[in-house]
Design a protein around this nucleic acid. Sequence first.
DNA 1: ACGTCATTGTACCGGTCGGTACAATCTCTC
DNA 2: GAGAGATTGTACCGACCGGTACAATGACGT
Lengths: 189, 189
Amino acid sequence: MRRIAPERADLLSIIGEVFREHGYEGASLALIGAATGLGKGSLYHFFPGGKEEMARAVIAHIDGWFEDNVFAPLRDNADPRAGIEHMFEATDSYFRSGRRVCLIGAFALDDSRDLFSGQIRDYFGRWITSLAEALTRSGYRPGEASELAEEAVAVIQGALTLARAASDLDIFSRALRRVRMRLEPPAKI
Amino acid sequence: MRRIAPERADLLSIIGEVFREHGYEGASLALIGAATGLGKGSLYHFFPGGKEEMARAVIAHIDGWFEDNVFAPLRDNADPRAGIEHMFEATDSYFRSGRRVCLIGAFALDDSRDLFSGQIRDYFGRWITSLAEALTRSGYRPGEASELAEEAVAVIQGALTLARAASDLDIFSRALRRVRMRLEPPAKI
DNA sequence: ACGTCATTGTACCGGTCGGTACAATCTCTC
DNA sequence: GAGAGATTGTACCGACCGGTACAATGACGT
């Protein structure tokens, strides 16, 4: 349960889509204003720190969604396989089967990476470690689990890039299906 | 053998690094001028089309390097396994083991994607199809080869993102090693 | 030495950027 | 309905953006 006023959550979603679509530098205050229907007065009222604070809040908002819908289930579900399954469903749903791109991944490549490096590192780090933990519980050796988790997150990120590059959403679905299959069998040693 | 004057190739490399480091929008003419030591007069003399032509030329330059050092070997090497091995070595070398990011991948996520969508689609498309062709020749069924190729390129792209996000170059090396191992065995049907 | 053409530095353009200032308005409490 | 605080529109700022114009300089064949 997050104590964010619903209006603010909606606002962050809208601003997030602008950042997602145009990148940090490309998301001008004019675009953000047009998308939200708010003028600069309002935007700077809600985000006194300006564009940088907006981006930070948007990243935190996305991070919170993944924490609630992906990372926590991976860590907390008594059945690690169910947690992993949940991750794939949430991931496919979040990225709209490849229609959406990963804003945090885009920021990691962007010029903006230095501004948000802590948040970015944290997001991917927690994704990988929580997935690795679930894989370990499901029977993989810790080292193997860690590498598999890294690879799975990399495939997801890369597939989003390729799907966007090729304008072919199926690339993402195929990649998700393949990596899901690979993670399914418990360690066969 | 490409008939580009060496100075122009060097120029494209330098400009490419600016785009790679700052993205399309972030790479201002001031930055490009500082990196190359050329003023606007010279830049617009060599690239009358301005920044967009520079980016197009840079993408074509990178695409040419991959064509010569990755795609062609994949297609032409009589031993497909050797071609694939060559791809991994060239890829690790090009991306400096994760120190460098994929400019074309970054452009695919960027706001600039619409400007260069044809070139971007072509680059990734040829990478995937030439790798799939080599995998087919090495014994995989065409469908499986195609999916494997897609996945391999996705892992490479995603690992570059993660390596940058985590400031941990080893992520890229590990990913490359894993996917190399996966592609090695011929189809075991 | 000349003419030619490639190359360059510099000044300038209109437009947009992120950000600030501030007065007007809205909303809610007492 | 008075007052207070939250919210908003608008005008404005200096800086920088990509791009253009053009005169000065350079290199070079003749």
